[in-house]
Design a protein around this nucleic acid. Structure first.
Lengths: 123, 123
DNA sequence: ATGCACTTTAGAGTACACTCTAATGCAAGA
DNA sequence: TCTTGCATTAGAGTGTACTCTAAAGTGCAT
């Protein structure tokens, strides 16, 4: 199945500018073109973009995404890809801890506010 | 307890540049000065910076942090502060979902790699 | 009092990740 | 064939969040 840049933009919610920028920067592999030079994205490209967005959103660095994009069509690079993903998994776990700490700090504030308001009612 | 900008930089791991920038931008309230104009941070300032870093790191927008910093010494603003923090709590929960989705996508990749490597051994 | 390591400020510079512009070309319906 | 609406590119511009520079002042040990 093939897609125009417009369709991919709609499906990924990335602007056309961003899609072109990602290709220029090497975050996605070189996209096939039709005879007029228009981009033709295929299923694999869409799949990669979908995955890229998930891991990018959770903080995978641009450099790592470029690296992954460069090696992802070579079966010999599976060990390296595993390593990258394992590292990112550790990063996600650290983020989960940060979120929990932030949540705890917020709940502590709520308790403080409860206390202040309880005292003001006592008067 | 009072602290110099140097001590606060060490305690918060923010650079002195950043600490001055946060004050200029209103992310922290105006810091007291000694007779020479040097900043003197107190316990409250440190407490706010510690909290700010936790929620900033989990994506609370700068504008919201500025707002919070502006109202946080007025007890009448507790309901507004509660509202801000409740909204951020929702945001954190959404991020937790994103992290989980990213984690699931990574585990799917691992399974795919296992499959490919299993098949190559079978030959 | 001299030196050195701090501090201050306004404002300039940087890095990142887009975001857009301008010039140009292709596709297709009236 | 003309017009409208797509596409292409190189390269310029934007917004955010710092990060640093330059010039000047302060504190304190030698």
């Amino acid at each position: 199945m093939n897609y125009s840049i417009n369709e991919i933009s709609r499906l990924t919610k990335l602007s056309k500018y961003t899609l072109r920028y990602y290709e220029k920067e090497g975050l996605v592999p070189k996209i096939k073109r039709n005879s007029s030079g228009y981009r033709i994205y295929d299923e694999k490209d869409l799949e990669w973009l979908t995955f890229l967005l998930k891991v990018k959103e959770t903080g995978m660095p641009i450099q790592t995404l470029k690296r992954f994009s460069r090696i992802m069509f070579n079966p010999k690079t599976i060990p390296e890809r595993r390593k990258i993903l394992l590292e990112h998994k550790q990063h996600i776990i650290q983020q989960q801890e940060k979120l929990q700490k932030s949540l705890d700090a917020i709940d502590k504030k709520f308790k403080k506010y409860d206390e202040i308001q309880r005292k003001s009612i006592e008067l």
